[in-house]
Simulated assay, not measured.
Amino acid sequence: MDLHSHSTASDGGLAPDELVWHAHNQGVTHLALTDHDTCAGIEAARQAAKSAGITLIPGIELSVSWAGRTIHVVGLGIDPAAPALQAFIKQVQAARQARAEAICDRLQKIGLTLDWRSIETHSIGRSHLAMAMVAAGWVKDHQKAFDYYLKQGKKGWVRAEWPALEDGVAAITAAGGIAVLAHPGVYTLSHAKMRALIEDFMAAGGEGIEVSTRAQVDKALQSAAERARQYGLYASQGSDFHHLAWRWRSLGRLAALPPELTPIMSASQLRPYFKDHG
């Protein structure tokens, strides 16, 4: 089971159908496609899942803002066509395009010409700009693009302007899904700030937290598991798979959830989806 993955509909390296077959080859029985701020790959993935004989859970990973920070919220078991979710996606896509244009304008001022409109994707992001910079020969690899130009403090940095956390959670729940706080271990927050984030997330209607995101048990898993216990959150597991070369995010290679936690798959919000599509 892997409940967090990306395809070429956003910033992944495999097309939705290729992702599904890779999941099948990895022994994954349940896969959630959770592309960044788009549902564009779900139908192709769903058709491939029928052939591959695995369960495809429609999902999304929304970019939201909380206390001046970018936070990611995964939605599982969503109706991709839900009007509230589509309205939110439209808002975020406008923010993504505005940011990409602003980044390209900044790069232009230092002699690096890049047209974000020429990049084929449903959800433009800095990763796409980084790959375009590699293709143009300006940098050696994706990471160098961030290190030299795209991360905070560099010439191409532009702060993202995402909708509020509560609006993202509301869009997911309005689409019949369950909202999950994605990869809590990546946020550099104090204990007090993390507590505030989780409390605000739950107040908005969030009910899950990613616990298992790696193949091995580590401090991040132990910390997330403790928060799931403390707050009574459903526990999710997902690799955040993007590219085959990123072996630290191998699809389906995840540590087991601690047995005392309640798995996200038991969440009542997901049951109608499985009844209709399982």
Results as ranks from 00 to 15, higher is better:
4 H>S: 02
6 H>W: 10
14 L>S: 03
15 A>M: 06
17 D>F: 04
17 D>Y: 09
19 L>P: 11
20 V>Q: 06
26 Q>V: 12
35 D>Q: 08
42 I>F: 03
44 A>H: 06
46 R>F: 06
53 G>P: 11
54 I>G: 00
59 G>P: 04
61 E>T: 15
63 S>E: 13
72 H>W: 11
75 G>N: 09
77 G>D: 14
78 I>C: 08
80 P>D: 05
85 L>V: 12
85 L>R: 05
96 R>N: 10
97 Q>K: 00
104 C>S: 03
112 L>R: 07
112 L>F: 03
113 T>H: 07
113 T>S: 04
116 W>F: 04
117 R>S: 05
119 I>F: 01
121 T>P: 13
123 S>Q: 07
125 G>N: 09
127 S>W: 11
129 L>D: 15
139 V>K: 08
139 V>Q: 12
142 H>E: 13
142 H>Y: 14
150 L>T: 15
151 K>D: 15
154 K>C: 15
155 K>S: 12
156 G>S: 11
157 W>D: 13
158 V>W: 09
159 R>G: 09
160 A>R: 10
165 L>C: 02
170 A>K: 00
170 A>N: 05
171 A>S: 04
172 I>H: 05
174 A>Q: 02
175 A>S: 08
176 G>D: 15
186 V>K: 13
189 L>W: 09
189 L>G: 06
199 E>H: 07
203 A>Q: 13
205 G>H: 07
210 E>Q: 00
210 E>N: 03
226 E>F: 07
230 Q>G: 01
231 Y>R: 00
246 W>I: 12
248 W>C: 09
262 T>E: 12
263 P>S: 00
269 Q>W: 08
270 L>E: 12
270 L>A: 01
277 H>M: 10
